[in-house]
Simulated scan of single mutants.
Amino acid sequence: MIIKKVFNNNVSLVIDGDEEKILMGKGIGFQKQSGDEVDENLIEKTFVTSLSSHPLEKLTTFFDEIPLEIVSLTSDLIQEGRILLGEHVGDHLLIPLSDHIWFALKRLEDQTEIEYPLKWEMKHMYPEEYTFAKKALKMIEKRTYKVLPSSEVVPIAMHFVNARYGANSYHQTYEMTALVSKIIDVIHYHYFVDLDEDSLHYARFITHLRYFILRQMAGEEDTSEAEDVFQDLIQQKYPKAFECAIKIKKLLETSMNWNVHYDELTYLTIHIQRLTAI
């Protein structure tokens, strides 16, 4: 492995075959420069990176600003998250999550707390990530001896939700979560019933909405159309669910300026019928 960039005495960017990696270890960059070989005995942590998503200038600034112990802590959180949540939890979380944790700790010193909305939605829509985020707060407390406010569970969970659904940013996940919440409200007030959030139909509906919203955010419209006969059959068989689906269609078209095709309307109707059937 050949050093490409020394960030500080303990962090270096290296070339390893066709991959670029960030190596961490005590003294791994000490008195080293570009072109030198790495002392592999000093490697403590390894991250696969991409300069297309994390330019060299950004990485340099990051390692100048964020203490090594916070980066190391975040690395351990990612490793634990990969075990508990799945292989989609990757090294791409290192920079944004380290950055968030560090500035959350700085806000704690300044006695500044941010109240994040959608805590209820996060807890019910992403229970695995929410539970892990609570564990992450305990890990942060154990390593830093500082207790972050419980409200921090929301943004930490969102980072892991991003990893699961391939959202481009924290704000995209936030917008997706808020939109799903509005859709659930439409169903709730249309039927005046409380939905069973532990049911399989609820989980499938939420999953359908997530991927539909992400496709729309990415500009990937589904141009396929269900047959008119099938649409008419669904409308006739489930008139109340179809009426509710029309309300959701109007919500998305007016608030998001999305073009909701009638095949999506059919899928919504079927999901709503299953979700509300007694």
Rank of each mutant, 00 (worst) to 15 (best):
H92G: 02
I246P: 04
E37D: 14
E197F: 13
T207S: 15
F7R: 07
S98R: 03
K146G: 02
I248T: 07
V11L: 04
L179F: 02
L214G: 03
A157C: 03
P55A: 04
D222T: 02
I140P: 05
K247S: 12
W120G: 09
T46L: 10
I183F: 13
R210I: 11
A226I: 10
S50P: 12
Q31K: 13
E253H: 04
M125N: 04
E80P: 00
I15K: 15
E115L: 08
E225T: 15
P127K: 06
K247F: 02
D16W: 02
M125S: 01
L85E: 04
E57H: 06
Y238N: 14
T74D: 11
T223Q: 12
T112P: 00
K135T: 08
F205P: 00
T61L: 06
L137M: 05
L77D: 06
W102V: 00
C244T: 14
A163R: 11
S169G: 07
K134C: 02
R107M: 05
G81R: 01
L137S: 04
V89F: 01
E221Q: 12
I272H: 08
E40S: 13
I234M: 10
V6N: 07
M24W: 03
V180I: 15
D91Q: 05
I114V: 15
Q31H: 07
I278F: 15
N9Q: 13
D232V: 04
T276G: 01
D91H: 14
H171S: 10
V193F: 08
T276E: 01
V14R: 04
E225V: 14
L51W: 00
L275T: 09
P55D: 08
F242R: 09
L209A: 11
K240A: 12
Y165E: 06
D185K: 12
D76S: 12
K138Y: 01
M217A: 07
I2R: 05
I183Q: 11
I22C: 03
S98M: 05
I101H: 06
R107G: 05
A245S: 11
Q33T: 09
I187V: 09
L214V: 05
S98I: 06
D16H: 10
G166T: 10
G81N: 02
Q111A: 09
A241I: 13
A133C: 08
T177Q: 05
E220D: 15
T177R: 09
G27D: 07
E44W: 00
D232P: 00
L77W: 13
L59M: 13
V38Y: 00
L214K: 08
L68K: 06
R164E: 04
K247C: 07
I206T: 08
K134Q: 09
S150L: 10
Q79G: 06
H159G: 07
A245Y: 00
L13Q: 06
E19L: 12
H271Y: 15
P149R: 11
F160D: 11
L23R: 02
Y238P: 05
L84V: 13
S12Q: 14
V6I: 14
V193M: 14
V38E: 00
M158V: 05
L56K: 09
L105I: 12
L251P: 02
H88D: 14
F212R: 10
Y145V: 00
E253L: 05
R107F: 08
I2V: 07
E264A: 11
R82F: 06
P55F: 05
T144F: 03
L265D: 06
S224R: 07
